[in-house]
Computed example of a mutant assay.
Amino acid sequence: MTELLNTLYVQTPGASLHLDGDAVRVALPEGGPRRPLPLLRLESIVVMGNIQVSSQLLGRCADDGRPVVWMSQGGRFRFRTGGPTRGNVLLRHAQHLAHADPGVRVEIARACLAGKIQNSRQILLKGARDSTTHKTRLRAAAEDLAGSLESAGRAGDVETLMGVEGNAARTYFEAFALLVRPETGFVFPGRVKRPPTDPVNALLSFLYGLVRSMVHGACEQVGLDPYVGFLHGIRPGKPALALDLMEEFRSVLADRAALTLINRRQIDPEDFETLPGGAVQLTEEGRKTVLGYWQQQRAKEYNHRVLGRQVPAALLPSVQARLMARHLRKDLPGYLPWTV
């Protein structure tokens, strides 16, 4: 049983992190005592914006295999540091061979997309059950996604799959707008990214960045190459496999969190700021609220059909990365995405 460790998030501008024996000490710009945090209890460290990390701490984290991730204040993944590449080189070789085989590649890509569509559909069906005004429209959108699942199952190449994914995403986000309660003061105009120009999209992008960081780390932990994927194409600097595997987690871990934070009014429009040029991002206080909720949700347990037991959300990406590795080693006949 893998122990669920914590992730340290640091977002205060001007803060710095230092190695203090077997602990990390966070120094805040306004000063004041800060109790060191034992490294033994930390799975990873995520810093956002203008944060300094000492070379001694980076070296210790590299030796321990503990990733340090840099993100923008808006939640965009920037880069990560780690130690030497781990994992069996034969696994990565099998991964490269699978990508080079069109039949194997489309089979894995089909499974990744099916997991995304199925989980997105469940979000809409739950929303329809809870809605008093949009039941019919939400159920119709969920039915359209069921049709997208069938289309994905028939797709014979990755290009066709990406077309199915695009249509399913449009259907889903049109319905997602109906799940944002108007009395909250938030309006979702449709998915806008790079950069997000409204609070809901800014929140979604921030949460997607957290999911991506978690999945990227799981790939490296298992020994997979995060940059060689199956659904997403290979491009320099693009972690295609991490993007593949995070698809099945987007709606359940990120979209549901965004809806909860908004609809329960744990966050409001004043928790966002508009930057020169029109980009919108969370304020420092808004990020604090979101990260606090995210840490709670990491411990929430979900049923995993393959394992036959409950698994904390924070460990789901590692489980799925291991299932992908087992398939690439031919220990499993196919990749089985996680679905709620």
Rank of each mutant, 00 (worst) to 15 (best):
D101L: 08
G103P: 02
G103W: 11
V104Q: 15
R105S: 04
V106R: 14
R110G: 04
A111H: 11
C112Y: 11
C112L: 13
A114H: 12
A114G: 13
K116P: 02
K116N: 08
Q118L: 14
Q118G: 02
Q118P: 00
Q118V: 12
N119Q: 05
S120A: 14
S120M: 13
R121H: 01
R121Q: 15
Q122R: 15
I123P: 01
I123K: 00
L125N: 01
L125W: 10
L125K: 09
A128C: 04
D130P: 00
D130T: 05
D130H: 10
D130M: 08
H134L: 02
T136N: 08
R137P: 00
L138W: 07
R139G: 00
A141F: 08
A142T: 12
A142R: 08
D144S: 14
L145W: 09
A146T: 13
G147M: 07
S148T: 01
S148F: 13
S148M: 14
S148K: 13
L149I: 11
L149M: 13
L149Y: 04
S151H: 10
A152F: 04
A152R: 04
A152N: 04
R154Q: 14
R154L: 13
A155G: 04
A155Q: 08
E159F: 07
T160Q: 13
M162W: 10
M162E: 11
G163Y: 12
G163I: 11
V164K: 06
V164F: 08
A168E: 05
Y172T: 03
F176R: 06
L178T: 02
L179G: 05
P182T: 12
P182D: 13
P189S: 09
P196N: 09
T197V: 15
D198G: 02
D198V: 05
P199C: 11
P199I: 12
A202K: 09
L203E: 05
L203K: 06
L204Y: 07
S205W: 04
G209Y: 07
G209S: 11
S213A: 15
S213I: 05
S213N: 09
M214G: 00
H216W: 13
G217A: 11
Q221F: 06
V222R: 10
V222T: 14
G223T: 05
P226D: 07
V228G: 01
G229M: 06
G229V: 03
